[in-house]
Design a protein around this nucleic acid. Structure first.
Lengths: 395, 395
DNA sequence: TGATCATGCAGAAACGTGCCTGCCAAGTGG
DNA sequence: CCACTTGGCAGGCACGTTTCTGCATGATCA
């Protein structure tokens, strides 16, 4: 007889405690159900809220109230129920709770996919750092992150109940974003949305100011002709940074010198770096927009016999610590992905839980230029006389 | 009159089509419900399966069968229902489906946490690569990954309905793993489980063989005394690699020369590399167990005026591409995290969907030694005569 | 012609919670 | 003594699916 408690006509043969259990656990409306076969049949093994109610001799409502801290219950009952639940190893069903409350505690994090399989996951340390901070911030507030592809893999998106989504660098009229907004879910983007994308909020750096500042820094260090290593991709970061470079060139009256390559190709960067330094109008300083550009440019400089920073100033945008240990150490621009990931998640959870804010909420995170040897010339007083042979300027 | 269909006593006043809708959509058991206020009251705005059934003039069952490709339906009905569902923008509720079917399509991925906040997310490129491959493999089979902390943050774990979990390098008697197994969920670990941890399956490299092979490679390249840069952590990878090193030393009759440091401290690695090269019994070859050790050792070698590979052979375990572009390029041992991430997810989903396998299933992924300049001495035939001054050998 | 069978669908029972409603008893003021 | 509050709990509906069961209807066959 595996059934701990039953209700059939043998009820009055049971001793008093069992009788009470049966009375409180199963109301008259449940008599028609075959409770014995369901629970008694050892199905799944997980204890439900009904089992807790039966074991504690109270109703389902009381168990729910006791565990969730609601209702009007004396502390004695509350403790008793909690203890019984603990003893049975009761875990509330997340699916049932989600269905009932409408909140799942899950927030999506889109990863952009190049081509079919791969993701910009570790391509650049930026995303890894950002995702790490986002995960941490979400967990601190009781949410978990779900990694989802930015493509409209429809089945996967609709198979998971999300409370909101973080999108990384959404494209112009992102179908995923519009679909999510249509469903009434808040969407916060890393990177300001292009066009009229209806995001709830967004977080970004001031990329133009960062590039202008950085170019000024290199010019101050003695750069005469600054080159750019950029991407063929059309995302906002690349676009804003490149136009800022072109604006700066126009302002100081320098001809733009840049090479662009598909940023998702791990090998194309080194080739483009080579192209840039092989040009007849070779720059004497280069800013690389993407993470691996620093090492690529350094290797290319060695191949051409250029000393860094004496013959070539180098700055790249990266979050990687390796640039502190290269020879020489390379100046990097940090976009502060941790702060961005944290801010994005905070804004999203605020939108999920909090009041409706009118209009998109924006937050700009300051960048940080970590100045190392590669962008610092020897003290300029030596440059005043004749350090770089003028013959190289007029051949 | 916002209600598209109603059931009250005005039913027989409706024209024929509406009558059919009302009849098929709402059975007699639903008359007592206030359907009009629920759906008609514009609540949430999302269309449910009932709305689709009503709009298509069929029953809920037919809608479910038509959309899921089950049941015996003529293609005409199937197409009609699909079209109506599309027109209404119907998306099935993931929570309800999960509750009913017991499968959520979500699998957990644990990230180990050092201290409070941070995770081993980008600490070493290994995890990022592995997580990327795991995400990709999961999505290809219709699952999504949920990032969860390895600590027993109890609320977060029980608030998400998982079908299974991937654990990375579980500790000896991991409470999370035992809890998950107790709930009947499959658990697959990256890294062979220590002790009697009851995982469903595991994937790992043959770390001992890899280290022995690698040390042989260095000895073959002329190393007389090989040092080790290792960690104070007690995880399986560190333990197996270190004992393999010690066994190798014993076999070839060399005194072990190693320094260990807390691997989660981003600065301690450089300090330990310095310590290792400052020892009186300075090694002429070093293997670094962790990702950043290569650049740290290279920087330390420069500080001590040691040329690589002439005075010091270097190998480190890393997945980073930067070691192809350093000066000189550094030989790395790759643990093939992509293959591991893919294998782990495949095994897990097989366990979720497939038949029960008896006993833990194990899969060993081969490692790859990417030989670069840092572990190759000049061609040995030159060494036969007198390329390196013999004075350095007998001072 | 009646029995059998495949077809095309509708009814309704779950899945496990949360919470609204409401009943009963005990105290409390008039 | 009665209305009235208040504490302490039980009943039961609803969340939105999936799926088992079963009822018609026409076709086929003995």
């Amino acid at each position: 007889m595996p059934a701990k408690w039953c209700i059939c006509d043998t009820l009055n043969h049971l001793p008093a405690p069992y009788y009470r259990l049966a009375m409180t656990a199963a109301g008259k409306h449940q008599v028609s159900r075959t409770d014995t076969t369901r629970r008694g049949g050892r199905q799944g093994g997980r204890a439900g809220i009904r089992d807790v109610a039966a074991a504690a001799g109270v109703s389902i409502t009381t168990v729910s109230d006791a565990l969730n801290g609601k209702g009007r219950l004396p502390d004695a009952t509350r403790r008793h129920v909690r203890e019984v639940a603990e003893r049975l190893g009761y875990r509330p069903s997340a699916a049932a709770r989600t269905l009932r409350t409408g909140k799942s505690g899950l927030i999506g994090l889109t990863v952009t996919t190049y081509g079919d399989e791969p993701f910009t996951f570790t391509e650049f340390a930026y995303f890894a750092e950002m995702a790490r901070a986002a995960t941490s911030a979400a967990l601190a507030r009781g949410y978990a992150l779900v990694i989802l592809p930015a493509t409209s893999q429809h089945d996967v998106w609709s198979n998971v109940a999300l409370d909101g989504t973080v999108v990384v660098d959404p494209s112009d009229h992102d179908p995923v974003v519009t679909e999510l907004v249509r469903q009434g879910l808040p969407v916060v983007s890393d990177g300001r949305p292009a066009g009229t994308l209806p995001v709830t909020a967004w977080v970004d750096n001031d990329h133009e100011a960062a590039v202008l500042d950085l170019l000024d820094h290199m010019a101050e260090a003695g750069a005469r002709r600054i080159g750019l290593l950029t991407g063929t991709t059309t995302d906002t970061y690349t676009r804003l940074s490149t136009t800022a470079y072109l604006r700066w060139c126009e302002r100081v009256g320098q001809d733009p010198v840049y090479e662009s390559y598909p940023a998702h190709d791990p090998c194309a960067g080194a080739v483009a770096a080579d192209r840039l330094l092989a040009r007849p109008d070779r720059p004497d300083a280069v800013y690389g927009l993407f993470d691996p550009n620093g090492t690529d440019l350094l290797a290319a400089a060695r191949r051409y016999g250029l000393r860094v920073p004496d013959d070539l100033l180098l700055v790249c945008c990266s979050e990687s610590m390796v640039y502190a240990a290269t020879e020489p150490p390379i100046t990097t621009l940090s976009l502060k992905p941790r702060r961005i990931g944290t801010a994005v998640v905070q804004l999203l959870i605020d939108a999920i839980e909090g009041v409706e804010t009118d209009g998109p909420l924006e937050r700009v995170i300051p960048t940080e230029l970590i100045v190392r040897t590669s962008s610092q010339r020897r003290p300029p007083r030596t440059t005043v006389s004749a350090p770089r042979s003028p013959s190289s300027d007029r051949p």
